[in-house]
């Protein structure tokens, strides 16, 4: 090969060097813009847009007013995100896994309680009876911090009689002001049957519910 004609490897090395130099120049210009607070670097703009949009939405405005604890606020926001991502299985799976990894099963249940409108409905039902905003905050945060105690998430394979026993024990032992049952799809029917048995067995409690075609939230409230 003549000395004047570059070999293939020389050409490749030249291209690589050129690309790297181009990347260096671009990086330098961008980092300068970053340091001047003109830009930020992101992977997918939709992720940030979604979070920002949610924080401006009416439901977050209400939840954000009531929930003050940082961890609970984050999980509540994630509940709204999970609701928005309900039709995107891959993104839902990924976010649920991150919530579970960082905050455990209780954390995921807190997010699910918001996702399924349980907390917004609870606030709607409670707020007329609560005088000071701080009392509402305490009440909602207590519910969220002890979510396994106050909310029963009914699974599709849960048996009605086992659940009735579980709920009865809780009402007898803890005498909570409120106990919430949640069921979706197949579990909705189970929740309804548990409710009717609890109504018959506990005259000191009254129930109310919010339901859609696929979900039901049943509030079991202590009578004063």
């Amino acid at each position: 090969m003549s000395d004047d004609i570059p070999s293939n490897s020389d050409v490749l090395a030249g291209i690589t060097k050129g690309l790297l130099e181009h990347a260096e120049e671009k990086a330098m210009a961008w980092v300068e813009r970053f340091r001047n607070h003109e830009i930020i670097f992101i992977e997918d703009p939709c992720t940030i847009d979604r979070v920002k949009r949610q924080r401006k939405g009416p439901e977050w405005k209400m939840l954000g007013e009531v929930i003050k604890d940082r961890k609970l606020r984050l999980l509540a926001q994630m509940g709204l995100t999970l609701r928005e991502l309900e039709n995107d299985q891959e993104k839902t799976r990924s976010l649920r896994s991150k919530i579970h990894h960082r905050y455990g099963r209780d954390g995921l249940h807190i997010a699910e309680a918001v996702q399924n409108n349980i907390i917004s409905n609870f606030i709607g039902l409670e707020s007329p009876y609560i005088g000071e905003p701080v009392d509402l905050t305490n009440r909602v945060e207590k519910l969220l911090n002890d979510i396994e105690k106050y909310i029963v998430f009914i699974g599709p394979d849960d048996k009605g009689d086992v659940l009735v026993r579980r709920v009865s024990i809780r009402l007898d032992a803890d005498v909570p002001d409120t106990l919430i049952l949640f069921g979706a799809y197949k579990a909705k029917r189970v929740a309804i049957s548990v409710r009717s048995k609890i109504e018959k067995a506990f005259s000191s409690y009254a129930t109310s519910s919010v339901e859609t075609k696929i979900k039901i939230i049943i509030f079991i409230n202590k009578l004063n």
């Binding site: 930020i40 992101i42 979604r50 979070v51 940082r70 994630m78 919530i99």
Partner: peptide, 23 residues
């Protein structure tokens, strides 16, 4: 990754991290 201001914070790009950053 996302790189955000505040001592040049490098985070994973996901809703939980971004909501945490905003908080």
């Amino acid at each position: 990754m996302v790189i955000l201001h505040g001592s040049e914070i490098v985070l994973d790009s996901n809703p939980l991290s971004l909501a945490g950053y905003f908080e």
